[in-house]
Design a protein around this nucleic acid. Sequence first.
DNA 1: GCGAATCATCTTGTTCTCAGACGATCGGTG
DNA 2: CACCGATCGTCTGAGAACAAGATGATTCGC
Lengths: 166, 166
Amino acid sequence: MTPSRSATAAIAEPPERLKADLGWLCAQTLMAYRRAAEPAMETMPGGMRGYLVLAAAASGCANNQLEVARRLGVDRSVMVGLLDTLEDAGLVARKPNPTDRRERTIAITAAGNKRLTAIQTRLERATEHVLAPLSAGQRDGFLDALHTVVAHLALSETSPPMDGCA
Amino acid sequence: MTPSRSATAAIAEPPERLKADLGWLCAQTLMAYRRAAEPAMETMPGGMRGYLVLAAAASGCANNQLEVARRLGVDRSVMVGLLDTLEDAGLVARKPNPTDRRERTIAITAAGNKRLTAIQTRLERATEHVLAPLSAGQRDGFLDALHTVVAHLALSETSPPMDGCA
DNA sequence: GCGAATCATCTTGTTCTCAGACGATCGGTG
DNA sequence: CACCGATCGTCTGAGAACAAGATGATTCGC
C-alpha cells in the first residue's frame, strides 16, 4: 500500500493496529462528540466543564467543590475560576456548608437549572449524531455497557468512603 | 440528601443528570483507561501520543505526517517535536516520500515494532481492567459498537478523499 | 516556465496546567 | 480550653501545551 493517493480509495479506515485499542476508540468517539456538542457549548460559561459542574450541582452531589473537581478530573485551583465564571453568570451560588464551614456547597440557581435542561436537550442531539450508525438495540446495549463500566469505576477507584450522590 | 457523610453510604454513584451523557461516560472511561495504562506508557517516548504515532506508522498509514497529526488531533508543530523524540529513541525514521518529496513518510523501525507489540500487550491488560465489569458477550458487543461508531466517523468527518489505510 | 498551493519546520505569543504557600476552619489530645 | 495536625478554598508563579504566522523546499495547474 505504498502509493498514497490511489484512484478508488476514498475511505479513511482507522489504523489496523488501533482497532482493538479502547483508549483510541474512546478518544475518537469523545472528539467527535465534542465537535458535535460545540455549538451547544459556546453559550455556556466555562464550556464543557462548566456544564459538567452545573450537572453535578443539579444532581445534589456538590457538597464541597473539591469533590466535584476530583470527579471531573480538574485541578482544585482551576475549579475556583470555573465557579467564579458560573457564579458571575448567575447559574450557581456558593453557599457555606453549615456543618463544615470550610466547605462551600455549590447550589444551582433557577436560571442554572433552566440553562442546564436547555443544554442537555441540545446535547441529546449530539449524542444521537455520534451514535447514528448503531441500531436502536445496539445503541441501548452500548449505553448500558458504558454505564456499567463507569458505575463500576466509581466504586473501585476511590477506596475511602465517599458520600453517595444520586 | 443534604447531610454529606452519612453512616452507611460508601458508594459514589455518578451524578444523576449525567448518566445519559455520552461525553461524560466516554470521558470517565477514558480517564480510567489512561490511569490503568500509565505504567505501560512511562517508558514510551512521547507518552500516549508517541504510542499512537507508532501504531499509525506500523499500520502503514503515515505517508505524510500532517495526516497523522490531523488524525490524532494534535497541532502540526507539535508533531514535529513528537517525531523528533521518537526518532531520537530509534523507534521511527523520517524518510522522504519518493513520489512527493515535500512529504516525509514515517517508517517504523525494527526496534519500534518490538516496542509497539510489547506496549500493546500491556495495554490489553489495561483494557481488560476497565472492561472487567462486563460479561464476555457484553464486552464484545460494546467493542463492536465502538468500532462501528469510529469507522462511521472516519468516513463522514473528512469530506475530501483520503488514502485508505488498512 | 511561473504563480499558487502544500508540506515540514521554526519562532513567537498566548493560554492552560500544575505545584506550592496561605488563611480559615475542623478534629482530636491533653 | 489551648494546642496541633489535617483539610478546604484561594491565590500566585513557574513550566508546559497550544495556536498562528513566517520561511524554505517542493509540487501542480496553466
